[in-house]
Nucleic acid binder design. Structure first.
Lengths: 206, 206
DNA sequence: CTAGCTTGTTGACGGTGTCAACATACACTT
DNA sequence: AAGTGTATGTTGACACCGTCAACAAGCTAG
């Protein structure tokens, strides 16, 4: 009752706010999201959103959390299909991750870039982000069991890999990578380099 | 005459604005920077900054550009000292890069994170960022010549490596990496993994 | 000394987030 | 069915903000 959708005056303003905010973010960037404009678009007064979110930050946090859920779902769906090698799983996961970011740049930026959001310890965000990270850790654990990569702390390995794909996505989104470059190619090269770098290798000298 | 510092009414308001803005950014984050507050702090009216910067974005761009210069200088200073192996050069460069970001989180965020800044093609920023990237490309070229890593497009290799350290720095800054983790250790593991992943290796099967 | 450009000030406008006071619609009790 | 309470939405107000136009003052060049 408390959190489910019910039809009062507007119908379900809370959900409508989240949808509209997400739409504005993808269309015009997070900076364009305004409590007043949200009200205008939804045919509601400027203060109406405050009945559903404590403040603007809380609204954006909710939108970001929804983004995390969407990303997490995409990764899981893409991961689950059929018995694949852990190499293939990792490669696919990286590609899907970057693809999401490239397709939803403003949303991705909101999820990871906004200081105000992550700075405050919003448990929702923390949890949603952790779910994705744990998924990645799982891939590395499986990969270690298959004997393909070094037996190190899988969390550290996951951090290194996550950094690489997150960095690639961020730099691309922010336009720091020359447009002539091929993002898919770079993603593949990244995952391949990471896996090769973690692979068990025979000692040569010393 | 046009761009050099001169003592008119205030002394050198332009430089003072850049300094004060940078200070505010490191102390309270970029969001706290306000034209009016800048005026207040420097004992000047709210519109005075507009005699030196077209708008707030231009000011922030200049601050970001200064940050790029600082980072570039640090990397160069750290790189130049004595004849080191290209492995060592890369390792040090990565560490210095992450260290800068960790020590100046808000500034680093401004340099790479702000959509508004990078979105518009500010040539200053582009140039400053490119200088750092070119430096990295140079390291990989040297590294290829030494025969240690694969002979691929060094620019692509540089993108992969840059992504990894940038991603690590970003995730750390945004608090996405568990605080118990060791950022220096992760940085070393990242550079080592990258180099190993790019190393020339003998084929095994297929 | 005067003319002109550079720099700084003040007033104003429209925009924002947010709160308090008020109004309404629905749900639930009796 | 009536009435009451709470969830929801509205309006007015306040203090900010970025920015512009009109004005004032200071320095420099002739």
């Amino acid at each position: 009752m408390t959190n489910s959708a019910r039809a009062y005056h507007h119908g379900d303003l809370r959900a409508a706010l989240l949808d509209e905010a997400a739409a504005m973010i993808t269309e015009e960037g997070a900076a364009s999201v305004t409590m007043r404009e949200l009200g205008r678009r939804l045919g509601v007064s400027r203060a109406a959103p405050y009945r559903h979110f404590a403040d603007k930050t809380a609204l954006l946090v909710a939108v970001a959390a929804a983004g995390f859920d969407r990303l997490s779902g995409r990764l899981q769906t893409n991961d689950g299909g059929g018995p694949r090698s852990s190499v293939e799983r990792f490669r696919r996961m990286g590609e899907e991750y970057v693809r999401f970011a490239v397709e939803n740049p403003a949303h991705y930026r909101l999820m990871y870039g906004k200081e105000a959001l992550t700075r405050q310890d919003r448990p929702e965000l923390r949890e949603a982000a952790n779910a994705i990270f744990d998924q990645l850790v799982g891939v590395f654990q499986a990969h270690q069991r298959s004997g393909a990569i070094k037996r190190q702390d899988p969390r550290a390995q996951a951090y290194v890999a996550w950094s690489a794909v997150h960095g690639l996505a961020s730099l691309w989104i922010e336009g720091q990578i020359q447009a002539t470059a091929d993002i898919d190619g770079l993603t593949r090269q990244t995952t391949r380099t990471l896996l090769d770098g973690m692979r068990v290798r025979r000692r040569r000298g010393a």
